[in-house]
Design a protein around this nucleic acid. Sequence first.
DNA 1: TGTACATCAGTGAACGCGCGTTCACTGATGTAC
DNA 2: TGTACATCAGTGAACGCGCGTTCACTGATGTAC
Lengths: 190, 190
Amino acid sequence: MKKSKVETAQTRDRIVKTAAAEFRRNGIHASGLNDVMAAAGLTHGGFYRHFDSKDQLLAEACAVGGEAFAEMIESAASAGDGKNSLQAIVEAYLSPKHRDDREGCCPVVSLGSELARADEATRAIATEGFLDLVDFVAKRFPRTKPEVAKAKAIVVLCAMMGAVTMSRVVVDPDLSDEILLQMKKHLTGG
Amino acid sequence: MKKSKVETAQTRDRIVKTAAAEFRRNGIHASGLNDVMAAAGLTHGGFYRHFDSKDQLLAEACAVGGEAFAEMIESAASAGDGKNSLQAIVEAYLSPKHRDDREGCCPVVSLGSELARADEATRAIATEGFLDLVDFVAKRFPRTKPEVAKAKAIVVLCAMMGAVTMSRVVVDPDLSDEILLQMKKHLTGG
DNA sequence: TGTACATCAGTGAACGCGCGTTCACTGATGTAC
DNA sequence: TGTACATCAGTGAACGCGCGTTCACTGATGTAC
């Protein structure tokens, strides 16, 4: 049953990507390794050929999930023209599509309160992902001092994270939409 | 072993209050009924004399935790004078004290991403708690149309929730403080 | 008011189940000669 | 290049453990007479 090196690496990648989706969909605690491995088309026994522990998988899944989400945001930014790329980011982040995308969304939205209790390695990776996003958003404030741009980016990102999280908690669909809309108006100076 | 009606009601209250703290400290999934009952000074077997299920306890714990947190915010608001009560709320919510208070904090901060996956009853209670806070904060915008004040309150609350959540995720204490500080400056027009 | 009995809050053991993790086994791959 | 052997990815059963939930039992409380 031994697989080629290429195949082994592909399997490992598939497990991490599957975990990144499963964790975001169901939460960290609620996603069993059995679920993740089955969703990746494998049995659970082989897990420890690739990883030391569930915590290690979580850390790697956070890295991959964060990068994938950053790419989504970056492509949304480049869809808007140079001047309006901040608005394009805000509209993508605060869209009902993002709110309803349980597998591909921002990891902080789907896992925020669980990440706050995760081990240091995972939180360090989440911190890096956040800072990468902060840098990217900060560039949308040209002719602004770097520290000020960074501060603005932190505010915009955290505000959006809170809004999408809350839009998922409330039961009233109209209220959920309103939360996204009001935050969008606020952040785009409407 | 039967207890008096008063004692029974007190026990029930104690379980709910203990659960409200345990859930916020450790998360919903990570808090076992055994943990909650032991923390309330009881054995786990008696749980079902008071509640139908863990989900029911969660819903009631959300209600109690939300009310207790609202009272904290209201007392913070009345500590500042009438004009600056909004600023007092923002400063209390975005304080390191609130970030570091794992048991008494805002339920959305400690449980947000888990609440988003909770059952309808719990999310309905969380929605009520949120709307109560929105109404309370909206009153800090006098001489403003009710719809506009409500919109502003939604924005302020969600932005603060996101900031405190993120401040708990990041590993760098300076960055954590900066997140709180920048959001405070932003919301108080600094 | 005093007595007999039903109620039921709380205990502690047990239920089935799924968790994270381990392990003997398999057989195709990669390596050594 | 061809053959013999070591490696190890993946399987499936098993480990101990804790989960949510159930239940027989207890004894003090509340109730009926």
